[in-house]
Write a protein that binds this DNA or RNA. Structure first.
Lengths: 230, 230
DNA sequence: CACGACAACTCCTCAGACAACCTGAGAGGT
DNA sequence: ACCTCTCAGGTTGTCTGAGGAGTTGTCGTG
């Protein structure tokens, strides 16, 4: 059941994925009528109401359209979906891997371009991360992400900043689940503080290689955990 | 009674509209929990199944998300601006820079994960790029991008592949303009062939460092030209 | 051939039941 | 005072059965 996430998905979601895949793969071209609800229910092995809800979800995404008495018709095979929705559906590990690729390079850029203002912002974020040590998991993850966002912002590329922001919701979701699942803060309520401080220091003194290396190691560790947990 | 409000819409659609309106109007900000299904059913005057299907439609559109046992939560108040529009507004140099960051790391991944199929695809793309040497500027740029896309695909991360695909339109636009503006193919109708071949070779023999380095140099050169031209 | 009746499908809506799950409050122990 | 555990109430998830309403193709009749 390689449905990629830390929680097992409801039947409806599985049905949606199955149907969406068959549509995008071209099994049912645009304009064709889907099999009836009862037929789909039998082939998918779920109840009729589950099929209906799955079809509603696809209709909400703009892939199909139901006409009473006639049937459900495919009106688009391309998702035409926004990027955030795609991220939400992707496996957390894949999202995290891309985040790692992007941020490591962003850190290298930041080490070359950071301004004094960026440095103060980064230090403030680092302090906030420490302050969240005695807070809830979600708050700690938020502080952690804020620190990383501050570094990305120091790269001074608006596209990059937007891109990272796009990843944040899914990232947050996955990290909170991970921290909770593995009880990462059991021993140390402020895990990764030393590496994060070293990371910020490298950016501050303008050392791209060190910044990239430290960050890569830190993120790779988490990525391994995510892969094992998923 | 010819046009206008002919066939009344199904209750589900009415419920979807009603709920969507209340969400976009800000009655339920992001993060808040919606009233329970039974409550909504009573206030909307429809059955619970109808409410469920309406919520599924909104979930498919990316506005809400249901968590079993907890409730249905608002995760966005508007259908999320599409990323391509944002890219179109950004400076080409900034887009290209991010593309460089992403692809250099993607190439390193690809060097580790490429399969025999990937290698044949890359070779075919390289040949196609050569074949486009005597073609128009636009066709040559397309072949070039296709080669880069083939390498990214070899990294075997769906999120990464999608991300790169998102960049393609804007990239193509900028590159065609650049080639035309600087007359890059005046002397050599197939510029960058040697470096691209070296690049593919590095990925093929599984050398991440070399692949990353060659690609970075190649892309940085173009980025410089873009900055000067812009 | 033209046309209307009709049967067989389809989706639409509701009601009820039970399962799976989350959350918060309170009991109880330390 | 604090922590842990239990548990009840509420929530979404899933299935089933029953009609209602609309569409479409068929078939008999003229």
């Amino acid at each position: 059941m390689a449905l990629g996430a830390l929680h097992r998905s409801p039947l409806v979601d599985q049905a949606v994925e199955s149907l969406r895949e068959q549509i995008t793969q071209g099994l049912w071209p645009v304009g064709t009528r889907l099999p009836g609800e009862t037929t789909l229910a039998k082939t998918l092995g779920v109840g009729r109401s589950t099929v209906r809800e799955a079809l509603r979800a696809l209709a909400g995404a703009g892939l199909v359209q139901a006409r009473q008495g006639a049937g459900v018709f495919v009106i688009a095979t391309s998702p035409a979906e926004d990027w955030t929705a795609r991220l939400r559906r992707a496996a957390v590990a894949d999202v995290y891997e891309v985040r790692m690729l992007v941020e490591v390079q962003a850190a290298r850029l930041a080490a070359r371009r950071r301004t004094p203002d960026d440095v103060t912002a980064m230090h403030a974020a680092l302090e906030a991360r420490r302050g969240a040590a005695r807070d809830t998991d979600a708050a700690f993850v938020d502080a952690d992400i804020a620190l990383h966002a501050a570094v990305v912002a120091a790269a001074h590329n608006p596209v990059l900043t937007d891109l990272f922001a796009e990843f944040v919701p899914r990232l947050r979701e996955g990290l909170v689940a991970l921290v909770d699942l593995l009880d990462l803060r059991a021993g140390d309520p402020n895990p990764g503080d030393a590496t994060h401080a070293a990371f910020v220091g490298a950016v501050e003194r303008g050392d791209p290689d060190a910044a990239g290396r430290v960050l890569q190691e830190e993120l790779e560790q988490t990525l391994d955990r995510l892969r094992r947990a998923g």
